[in-house]
Every structure is written in structure tokens, then in C-alpha cells.
Design a protein around this nucleic acid. Sequence first.
DNA 1: GTCTATAACATGATAGAC
DNA 2: GTCTATCATGTTATAGAC
Lengths: 193, 193
Amino acid sequence: MEQTEERLLNVAADLFSAQGYAGVSMRDIAREMGITQAAIYHHFPSKDALYIAAVTYVFEQHTLEVSDQMSVIDDPSQRLELLIVAMLEAMEEDPRFRRIYLRELLEGDELKLAAIAENAFTAFYEPLYELMGELAPGSDRQLHILSLAGLTFHHLEARKLAPHLPHAAKGKTTLPSLARHITNLFLHGVTSS
Amino acid sequence: MEQTEERLLNVAADLFSAQGYAGVSMRDIAREMGITQAAIYHHFPSKDALYIAAVTYVFEQHTLEVSDQMSVIDDPSQRLELLIVAMLEAMEEDPRFRRIYLRELLEGDELKLAAIAENAFTAFYEPLYELMGELAPGSDRQLHILSLAGLTFHHLEARKLAPHLPHAAKGKTTLPSLARHITNLFLHGVTSS
DNA sequence: GTCTATAACATGATAGAC
DNA sequence: GTCTATCATGTTATAGAC
């Protein structure tokens, strides 16, 4: 991929993930790029095409392999903690990823949702699915995976909200403490912390 | 409140919660209302004012009293289950509520987030906070409450996504089974189901 | 690969009739 | 309380020069 095109995808992903499809104009993207709006059409035929390309681009960055380091560990609880830390770090590292996911969950049509399902979870889904079979055999594994996703996505996004809540904690929550909290809750529930 | 104005707030809330502020035009709202765009300005001075009024309107519907029926129950676990069912039902009943919450979490500025914090959780926060003190004394109660919020919001929103995931369950998830899943997970973790 | 210029249309908002 | 008409601006997209 050419350098300009990749930068364009990055700028577009930044803006779209933060302000949504309708909230970002081609001029906004062009301004951030330092070019004129018309120049974008040399790289992509339409705003729609640019959006889809940017979303795909962000998702492709997250199909890393996490299962290699995991497969050697026997204890499923330990493997879970590793996966949760990996998920949190991946989502923390690229806010665009989790925001596009949440955004598409809100307004995505069936077609986009199917694409999301295929792309967003690929790196984590299969190892997680297998893991759930070990941790809680016979249970609804998909429900558990969606629970885990809900916990991680929401905690990261809610850090902006937390200071405004009634009994706000003094310092802000660090990533490792979040990982410990989620792992603990997911494994043993609220009664064990 | 006049009848037309209330209907206007409802239509606006429907559209804004589904497509976001930038994704909805005054003409979209007018079309749904069966009036012209200019007529809206008789009721609200600007798009911004209408949006804020619609959001406030939706939130005000959800400051119901749930604590009355709860205070008589001694067992904290039982009270938790009641609260979770109440949360799920409230959010299921009005998708606009949870979507506006998630939307503002994504793009809300500090001012709006503060307003959200004040309004979105008012009905549930205090009883939940107290409950956490009984269920897990000494723990970070706010983290637990945000966990619970993440679970409920995400599960409800992800029901559109679930059928597209790799190992999708056959039937769709019912509200009572969701409530049972979340309560169980939150109380005892994945290992107990 | 980027520019200027422009077409064709959508948008938020106002003025004034009824 | 709603209408028509209109304004100023912003929008996606195209044409053609460099």
C-alpha cells in the first residue's frame, strides 16, 4: 500500500471512529491530511468506500496471533487471564477498534454486523470459545464470550465517565488493575474479591 | 406538555438514538412527524435544543422508583437479582435509553458526560452502591457497578450481532435467561454455571 | 497526486402569510 | 401551529489543468 493511502486510511479511521460516519465530512478528512477534498477521490471513489476501507484496515490490524504463547499453558484460568490482558491491551492501544465496534453495534445493518462478527473477534474468538468449554463445560459459551466483551469494551469506554459518577474513586483506573478486576469477576464473581 | 411537543420529543428521540445527532436532519424528523421542517422551530429554537430536550426527556422516563420493593428483602443476592431484572427490563423496554447512553459514552464531551452520570444511573446507582458494600465489602464498588452496566448494555445491544458469530446458538436469547446468566456470572463467576 | 472550479443537492435557520 | 419561500452555507462528487 502506498504511503499516502495508508495515512489517509489512518486519518479517516481516527475521525470516523470518534465522530461517526455522518459526523465527518470529506473536507474534515482532507483538512487533517493537509490536502483538498477533491484529492481524496483520487484514492477512493466515494465516502462510503473510504469508510469501509478504513474500518477494514483497522480490523485487519487486530488479527494478530495471541494463541501461540497461550497454547503452552495448561491451567485454563491462567490462559483466561492472559487472554483478557491481551484483549484489554489491544483495545487500549487502538481506541478506534473498540469505538468502531461499538458504533456498528449501535447502527450497523445486518450486512455490516456480519462483517463485524467475522473481523472484530477473529483473533480472540476461537481460543476463547475453546477455553469456555474447559472453564464451564455445558454452559452457553457464546453468552460467556459476549459477557467478557461487554466487560472489556465498557470498562475502557467508561473511564471518561467514571470521574463524574457519585462515588468516584480518587485516582484513575490502570490497565493492570482493570485486567485483574475483570479476570476475578469473570472467574469467581463479585463474592470473591 | 402539549401533545404535539411530546410527540416531537418521542420522534426525535427515536431517530437520534438510532442514527446519532449528525445522522438525523430536521427534515428527517419533520417527515416522520408529518409536518414541514420549519414547523419544528415553533417548538424548539434549534436542532441542538431539540436534541438536548429529547435526551433529557428519555432519561426522565427512567427515574422510576425500584428501591421500594427491594428494601424489604434481606438477602443481598436476591436483591441483586431483582435489580438486574429491573435494569434489563427498563433498558429493553426503551432501546433509546441505552443507545443514547452508549452514544454519549462514545462522543460526549465532559459536560454531557457529567449530565449522563447524573441522569442515566440515578434510579439504580445508589441501591447498587449500597448492595455492593454488602456483597463485596472492601472492594471497589464503582468498578463492580460499571461491570454490571457493561454486561447489561452489551448483552442487549449484541443480540443483533450474536446470530452472526461463529458458534451461534439456535434460538434467540430471552430476557429472563439473560437475567439469570448475568446474575449468576456476577455472583459466582463462570465456574459455577 | 494534487490543485481550482463547479455542479447538484442537503442542511440549519428565518420571514411572513394564513 | 403549520405552511411556503428563501437564504446562506455545507455536502458529495466530477471535470480538467498542472
